[in-house]
Amino acid sequence: MISSKTRVGIVGYGVIGKRVAQAVACQGDMELAGVADVVADWRIQAAAARQFPLYAADPSATSAMRDAGLELRGSLDDLLDVCDIVVDCTPKRVGARNAERYRTAGKRFILHGGEKHDITGHSFVAEANYASAVGRDSTRVVSCNTTSIVRTLGALKRAGLLKRARGTLLRRATDPWESHLGGLMNTVHPEPSIPSHQGPDARSVDAELDVVTMAVAVPMTIAHVHYWTVDLTRAATEEEVRAAFASSSRIALLRGDAGLVAPNVVKELMADSGRPHDSLYEVGLWADMLRVQGTELFYAYMVDNQAIVIPETIDAIRALAGHPALASESIAMTDSALGMGTPFAAKAKA
């Protein structure tokens, strides 16, 4: 019997790849066709322990992977033969090189924010432009910070409140698992370009956004933190703004007076709640910090750089597959499968 599920192949089983694989595995309408990589160490061994079908992403890696005791189903070409859609989670610029290979194989594919918009001609955030991705051959799920910008400004835009926005990003120095390899200490590293790349990248999803960003790398690895000043289209109450943010299932309203005062505390809550990899898929926005003065809005939030793009990637798979056609249906399916919305009771207080 031929399965009606979308068969997903994942290339690269690193920080993003392993989280996408876990998310695909818990979707009722998807099947994990396999994982391709070039490493033979603890990272891919974890995939083997979950009995994910394994493939060598490059022939040069085959011997080392088999010597490490990994049971390979074949090469990347073999994985392409058995999947409907490819999600490329490889390091920056590798996906760009792989794109032509996917096209030659006639496979729809998804790249991530490390690659340029021009490679796919489409950049994706589900709440903003799911419909324009339906049935496409490829798309690019934008970076963690860009995803947060489009989600939050998009919520204000849908409420008719957004005029223009200016944000400062405190960027984590490195991924937590690589902290021993290097990172900032006793200093910060201002990004030399204003705007930083996230603002223009957000406009690749929604060209109407009037947004400028500045960024500085700081000595932390848990998450990014954003501070925003927004000019509203009219005077509004803080309750109205909180309601606009609460209208998005992908923005979690945090409350410092409930003890959620910093990123490390929020991540601990995710662990206690049983989220895989302690993942905060939502934008964690401090609702009780938010302030409005006339037509100016001020707020701050955190971004789990390893998790926020996972639900977007799942929705992008559905969009390329062409079902469901409506963003709201896919978002609801993804949110339910990933356990989003809990344990944030603060949303009910918006």
Rank of each mutant, 00 (worst) to 15 (best):
R43N: 15
H197G: 01
I2M: 14
D29G: 02
A25I: 01
D137F: 03
G95V: 05
N305E: 14
M30K: 05
S193F: 10
R101V: 13
L170G: 10
D278W: 13
A40N: 11
G284P: 05
A99K: 06
V15H: 14
D210H: 13
T233Q: 13
A217F: 12
T6V: 15
Y13M: 01
L297E: 04
V150C: 00
K116C: 10
L280T: 03
L209K: 04
D78P: 05
G183N: 02
L260Q: 09
V141Q: 01
T62K: 15
S123E: 00
G121T: 06
A96L: 00
L326T: 09
E208V: 14
H122M: 02
G199E: 04
I194H: 12
K5S: 08
V266D: 04
V87Q: 05
A223P: 04
A99P: 06
D78L: 10
A36M: 09
L170S: 09
G12V: 12
H197D: 09
T313K: 05
S179K: 12
A316E: 04
S273N: 06
V142D: 01
R171N: 12
T168G: 07
D315M: 14
R255I: 00
S148F: 05
P190I: 06
P53E: 06
N264E: 15
G14Y: 12
L184M: 13
F52P: 01
A345F: 05
R158I: 04
P276R: 06
